[in-house]
Amino acid sequence: MMITLRKLPLAVAVAAGVMSAQAMAVDFHGYARSGIGWTGSGGEQQCFQTTGAQSKYRLGNECETYAELKLGQEVWKEGDKSFYFDTNVAYSVAQQNDWEATDPAFREANVQGKNLIEWLPGSTIWAGKRFYQRHDVHMIDFYYWDISGPGAGLENIDVGFGKLSLAATRSSEAGGSSSFASNNIYDYTNETANDVFDVRLAQMEINPGGTLELGVDYGRANLRDNYRLVDGASKDGWLFTAEHTQSVLKGFNKFVVQYATDSMTSQGKGLSQGSGVAFDNEKFAYNINNNGHMLRILDHGAISMGDNWDMMYVGMYQDINWDNDNGTKWWTVGIRPMYKWTPIMSTVMEIGYDNVESQRTGDKNNQYKITLAQQWQAGDSIWSRPAIRVFATYAKWDEKWGYDYTGNADNNANFGKAVPADFNGGSFGRGDSDEWTFGAQMEIWW
């Protein structure tokens, strides 16, 4: 008995050590931004985005507190085989008060198993909700290839000249389909599951310092038995992507060409959309029709120009041509140079221009935006974070068209359509004006 009692403290210590080691193995990653800002004409900070554009130049032009908190852990490992559990909870508030209630979004919860298939060394099996191989332009917060959501897949299969990845994910639309009631009355209240099937071939070395990635995505509306879509709904579509990445000037340049059809055009990033119906009456549900095509040509990157200068840049042309004439032509160009006074202090400027032409009206909206920021960051790279910055932003815009969301679809035949700025004596778009804002912001990723 005495021997047992003497061994007990040692056993407890060993158990505590094991539990401590396991606790220390938890990975904590994430992203956050928050700050305070004012508008020159009075009131809180207002942000500037061109009507019809899918993004905006973000430096000194973000008006919310946003965070993603990721917890993950390698829960099992034997040799080169392992299982990893990953989670991500995100939230966004308007940064107007101390207490701002919000419903967090559970954006990731997945398990990734590496090297589980003997004859596919280096590959990963995964299932669950996941940010899946996302491609974006940081300076405009624009995701041009992103099929994230609940799904499953097999990735990084070594095929000799590259890595092959296969995945299936889902994005549902509210009110996407109906069941038959009586007297030809349909009640569009059932969600429609939109499935996306993704095939990618990446890391193909085609020139010194250059790699090529090719991808095909097929999206479709997956209806339940005895349900139907509204007439004209976009049932399926394709997205084709080619991306060349070149190492240059201690950074990279990415050149991207994408072509999409029908349900893959509205978001243009790989998620299927077009079966959703915002109104019970299918007579007024025309606005979900996105049959047509999209072409996107994009070049972006980040480079170092000597010891003291870094720069991000982007140039993009996007043409969404829809059968219902509600598409757009959008082109944007911008730069973000950074001058480093010390390894932790810099001055950053961002200059961006957007131009969006309405397919329906032929009119154009444009905006110039310039931001000057003094910044303190954890390192001497344009990617170094955390960063604390004080900024001043000036924007000038001239908008000739907007979307008509007055009333509702039952009493407005133009609901959701592009109209000229002065349509029917109204005021659509943001008109011709300018404004400036100033404030302070922190940004961090880890």
Rank of each mutant, 00 (worst) to 15 (best):
G301S: 00
Q54R: 01
D380N: 08
S266T: 08
A392E: 11
N366S: 02
N321S: 02
C47R: 12
K369N: 01
P121L: 09
N324D: 04
L164I: 15
W376C: 10
A23E: 08
W446C: 15
W341S: 06
E282G: 10
N190S: 10
S275Y: 00
R33C: 02
G151S: 12
G334V: 07
G292C: 05
W383L: 13
K400E: 12
G43R: 00
L295V: 01
G292A: 03
N324T: 09
K7T: 10
V26G: 05
N194H: 07
V348L: 05
Q377R: 04
G52C: 02
V137F: 10
M338I: 06
L8P: 14
V356I: 04
I36T: 05
N308S: 07
A101S: 12
I36F: 06
K163E: 15
Q49K: 12
F28L: 04
V419I: 09
N366D: 02
A285G: 15
G128C: 11
E357D: 10
N287Y: 08
G151D: 00
Q267E: 15
A11S: 12
N61K: 12
S266L: 02
F142S: 15
N291S: 13
I303S: 06
D410E: 14
V111G: 14
G17R: 13
S41I: 04
A378D: 06
P337L: 00
G162V: 10
D187V: 02
Q95L: 05
T65I: 15
I344T: 11
G352V: 05
Y91F: 15
K329T: 00
I335M: 04
T245N: 05
D27E: 08
D136A: 08
M19L: 09
W238L: 05
V137G: 14
L59H: 10
M294I: 06
G175D: 00
Y218N: 02
N365T: 13
G52A: 07
I320T: 05
V18E: 06
M1K: 12
T87N: 06
N207K: 08
S182R: 10
I117S: 15
F180L: 04
F240S: 01
I288T: 14
R228P: 01
W331R: 03
Y84F: 15
N156S: 13
T192A: 14
A25S: 05
T245S: 09
W126C: 12
Y31F: 07
G209D: 04
L69F: 12
S427R: 15
G43A: 00
T51I: 05
A25G: 06
F240Y: 04
S247I: 03
L229P: 03
Q377H: 05
M264K: 02
Y57F: 15
N408K: 10
E435V: 01
E243D: 07
Q112L: 13
S275F: 05
Q95H: 09
G426D: 04
S20Y: 01
P343T: 04
D310V: 00
S304F: 01
N412T: 08
T261N: 13
N287I: 03
C63Y: 07
D422A: 15
V230F: 07
H29P: 07
S247N: 01
L229Q: 04
G37S: 06
T265A: 13
I3L: 05
D27G: 03
R6C: 06
W445L: 15
H293Y: 01
R58S: 09
V216I: 03
A105D: 15
G439C: 14
V93G: 12
S179T: 09
Q367R: 14
E74K: 05
P208S: 02
S263A: 12
I206S: 12
S381R: 14
Q375E: 15
T87A: 03
N355H: 11
A90V: 08
Q73K: 15
L249Q: 08
V12I: 06
M345V: 01
K329E: 01
S179P: 03
P150T: 13
W331G: 03
G175C: 11
E108D: 10
T39P: 09
G270V: 03
R224S: 06
G149C: 14
T393S: 10
D410Y: 09
N324K: 04
G209S: 08
R33S: 10
S178P: 00
N326S: 04
A11E: 12
L154P: 06
S346C: 00
K417I: 03
I3S: 09
F255Y: 01
F279C: 13
N291T: 14
V18I: 02
R228L: 08
T241I: 01
Q133K: 06
R200H: 01
D231N: 06
Q54H: 14
E155D: 11
G113V: 11
N110I: 15
D187G: 00
A168S: 12
E399D: 04
I344M: 05
T189S: 09
G40S: 03
N156I: 15
A395S: 06
Y286H: 11
R134P: 09
G122C: 09
V199A: 03
T328N: 13
Y368C: 10
R228C: 08
A13V: 04
L229M: 03
S177F: 00
G42C: 09
A53T: 01
G276R: 10
N253S: 05
A101V: 08
F131C: 11
G79V: 08
N365S: 04
G276D: 03
N324I: 04
P343L: 00
Q375R: 04
D198N: 02
R389H: 00
F48V: 12
V277I: 02
A221S: 10
A94T: 05
G210D: 01
G35S: 01
E282D: 12
T361S: 04
A278S: 14
V14D: 01
G40C: 05
F48L: 13
Q359E: 05
A181T: 07
H29D: 11
W322R: 08
V216G: 09
T102N: 13
N194T: 09
Y218C: 01
V216L: 06
D280Y: 12
G379D: 06
T4I: 02
I388F: 14
C47Y: 03
E350D: 08
R33L: 06
R6S: 08
T189I: 00
K163N: 15
A181V: 06
M204R: 13
F197I: 11
Q46E: 03
I288V: 08
S20T: 04
N222H: 06
G153A: 04
Q318L: 00
H293Q: 13
A221G: 10
K254E: 00
Q95K: 15
G40A: 07
K81R: 15
N424K: 14
A233V: 03
V26D: 05
G251R: 14
N253D: 01
A174V: 09
L212I: 09
R385G: 11
N61S: 10
A378T: 04
T265N: 07
Q45R: 04
F279Y: 03
Q133R: 10
G219A: 01
N366K: 08
I297N: 00
W309L: 07
W397G: 10
S358T: 03
S82N: 04
K235I: 04
G60V: 15
D434A: 10
L372I: 11
P121T: 13
F161V: 15
D398H: 10
F279I: 07
D217E: 02
S82R: 08
D380V: 10
I351V: 02
W76R: 09
E213A: 10
F28S: 04
E64A: 15
A260D: 00
P386L: 00
I444S: 15
E357K: 08
D363A: 11
F391I: 02
A233T: 02
G301V: 12
N412H: 07
E205D: 08
Q374E: 07
V230D: 12
R360H: 01
D299N: 03
D325E: 02
Y259N: 05
D231E: 10
M311T: 00
N222K: 04
D136N: 10
G37C: 05
P420L: 14
T65S: 15
I344N: 09
R389L: 11
D432N: 13
A221D: 06
Y339F: 05
V199M: 03
A23P: 05
S20F: 08
D103A: 12
F284L: 14
G151V: 15
R360L: 06
E108K: 07
H293R: 02
G215D: 00
R336S: 03
T4S: 13
D410N: 06
R296P: 00
L214P: 00
N355D: 01
Q258R: 00
T65P: 12
W238G: 08
T371P: 15
A105V: 08
Y132S: 13
W238C: 08
Y188C: 01
G306C: 02
D299A: 03
T4N: 10
E243K: 04
V256I: 02
I157N: 11
Q267H: 06
